[in-house]
Design a protein around this nucleic acid. Structure first.
Length: 211
DNA sequence: ACCAAAGAATCTTCACCAAC
DNA sequence: GTTGGTGAAGATTCTTTGGT
C-alpha cells in the first residue's frame, strides 16, 4: 500500500466499496465522477499502475472488467471441502460422508465456475505425477461433482475394483467394457470390464497452485 | 541545512474509437 | 447520441541528487 500514491489508494478504496455495495465493479467513469477526477485518462493511468503492482486485474475486452486481486467476493464463492487425495494406487475417501468429513481444508471457486453447485461438490488433491497426461499436476486440486453415472466422453474419477486404484480419465462405455482414455493421445487407454468400474464423480474444474 | 536542476510521476486536455 | 474506454502531447507536481 505504501508504494501507492494518494490517488491510487483512493481509487483502490473506491473500487472496494463499490464492490461491497454492488456485485459488479465500477467503470472508469464511475471512478472519475466519485473521486472528482477531470479525465478518464487519469483513472486509466492509475489503474495501469495498480495493475502493474498487482493490486487489480483488468479485462479490457469487457466493460467493468476491473477485478481486485486477493479479494474474495464471498457472495459469489463456493467453499468446497478437500476430502482427500487422488493418486495411482491409493483409494480415495468415499464422498458419501461429506458431512462428517473433517476437511479442515477447503478451496473456494467462483460460482460461475460451478453453476448450480450444491453439497454434491468435493475436491481432491492430486498426489504425484500420475495424471500429468490429463494436464493435471502434483499439488493441483480437482473439483468433482459426486455422481455414479456419467455420459460418454466426460472426465471422471473412477475406482477400479480389481486394481484397487482411483484414476481420473475420460470415460467411454463400449458394450461390456469401459475405455478409460487419457487426455494425452500418445498414451494408451485402459480397457476394463464395466463391472470393475465405479464412478466416484465427474470433473468440474481443476485448481492449479502456482507457487 | 539549503537550494537549484533534473528526472520521474502524475495529471490535463483533446481527439478518437467501438458498441449500443 | 450516449456510454465506456484509449492514446498522444504537454503541463504540473514531486522526488532525488549534487553543489555550496
Amino acid at each position: 500500500m505504501k508504494d501507492l500514491s494518494r490517488r491510487q489508494r483512493a481509487i483502490l478504496q473506491f473500487i472496494e466499496s463499490f464492490l461491497d455495495q454492488n456485485d459488479y465493479p465500477p467503470t472508469i467513469r464511475d471512478i472519475q465522477r466519485d473521486l472528482d477526477i477531470s479525465s478518464t485518462s487519469v483513472v486509466d493511468y492509475n489503474l495501469k499502475v495498480l495493475e502493474n503492482r498487482n493490486h487489480i486485474r483488468r479485462n479490457r475486452n469487457i466493460s467493468r472488467g476491473i477485478e481486485l486481486v486477493g479479494r474474495v467476493n464471498h457472495r459469489n464463492v463456493i467453499a468446497i471441502p478437500v476430502i482427500g487425495q487422488i493418486a495411482a494406487g491409493l483409494p480415495i475417501p468415499v464422498p458419501g460422508d461429506l458431512e462428517q468429513a473433517d476437511s479442515a481444508e477447503t478451496v473456494e471457486v467462483g460460482a460461475d465456475f460451478a453453476p448450480n453447485a450444491g453439497r454434491d461438490l468435493f475436491a481432491l488433491r492430486v498426489k504425484g505425477h500420475s495424471m500429468i497426461d490429463a494436464l493435471i499436476n502434483d499439488g493441483d486440486v480437482v473439483v468433482l461433482r459426486q455422481q455414479v453415472t456419467c455420459e460418454n466422453g466426460e472426465t471422471v474419477a473412477v475406482w477400479l475394483r480389481d486394481e484397487k486404484e482411483t484414476t481420473l480419465k475420460r470415460f467411454y462405455l463400449e458394450g461390456e467394457r469401459v475405455r478409460l482414455q487419457p487426455a494425452n493421445m500418445t498414451m494408451e487407454p485402459i480397457f476394463t470390464p464395466a463391472n470393475n468400474v465405479e464412478i466416484q464423480g465427474r470433473l468440474v474444474t481443476v485448481l492449479r497452485s502456482v507457487v
